[in-house]
Design a protein around this nucleic acid. Sequence first.
DNA 1: CAAGCGTGGGG
DNA 2: TCCCCAAGCTT
Length: 348
Amino acid sequence: MREIDCEVAGARLLRWYDAHARAMPWRVGPADRAVGVRPDPYHVWLSEVMLQQTTVAAVRDYFRRFLARWPRVEDLAAAEDAAVMGEWAGLGYYARARNLLACARAVVRDHGGQFPKTVEGLRALPGVGPYTAAAVASIAFDAPAVVVDGNVERVCARLFAVQTPLPAAKPELVRLAGLLTPDLRPGDHAQAMMDLGATICTPRNPTCGICPLLGLCAGQAAGAAAELPRKLAKPVKPVRQGVVWVLQRPDGAVLVERRPERGLLGGMLGFPGDAWDGGGGPAPVSANWTDAGEVRHTFTHFHLQLRVMVATGAGNPERGGFMADFRPDDLPTVMRKAWDAATLRAVE
DNA sequence: CAAGCGTGGGG
DNA sequence: TCCCCAAGCTT
């Protein structure tokens, strides 16, 4: 680790942010900010939960749709579970959607509809961890919280030339991020760090030549910025095989089941199938099943080769139930792929 | 505390 | 095509 002038770095970063901050649906524009307008805590919280492990590009439209459908935290708290899960479909990490709803209800029930203003208060809410608590506290409430996400870790590892690999380096990187965090405009500082990591101090091919911290960065000076942060090698993903059964009734209703709250795709709609352990399994109902081909999908920790069986029929299924107002948009992506394969097959 | 948990885009 | 990985949280 090398020492740098944190005051100068912080000042340069804010100046850069004022000139280059990207417009986002959840951000307050420069004009409003100059007049002292603070971002709505509900908007900040909603965007930060969506942004967990998810790119800005992927979040934009989801954020707009959620806000249009549930303009206030009270509206979200009153929503049906299935409506929220369906609106979240495709965004991934579905525990976030379940926690989102639980959090909105806790804010309304336990806090009179007002988000807690402290890191500790926020941290106690479902789905709010160290990062999100600090982000909401600083961005929405101007608290000098230390915000550390993947971007901040990378920027700090390079700026201070930290050689320790992640995740062991995490505590040290949190300490260094704290040295950089100013008392004034901590929320803008946090967003500046993340914008810098997303646009200039990128994981690969960082554009050090246009970096506002050029000249202060120990990693760049050592010609090793792109090599940092060091990380432990990741294990290879196993390949798993499974089958799903897509059954459409003559009247158009589709056989689906609500997946268990816990585990993979928890709480989401899906088609009946096996455990994706290669064991296969019986069809949920007797019908004239045909093979609609294989769908490939990669999850966080395994690759899936999914056999899609399709039929038209009725009967009393052993699992799930027929849904009349079925909408493919409510499905998680892997299930939507299966639906696409099944319907494409049916058209032929 | 290591493991489980999605998805789409970029190199 | 494949690997990397992104504004993490929970258990």
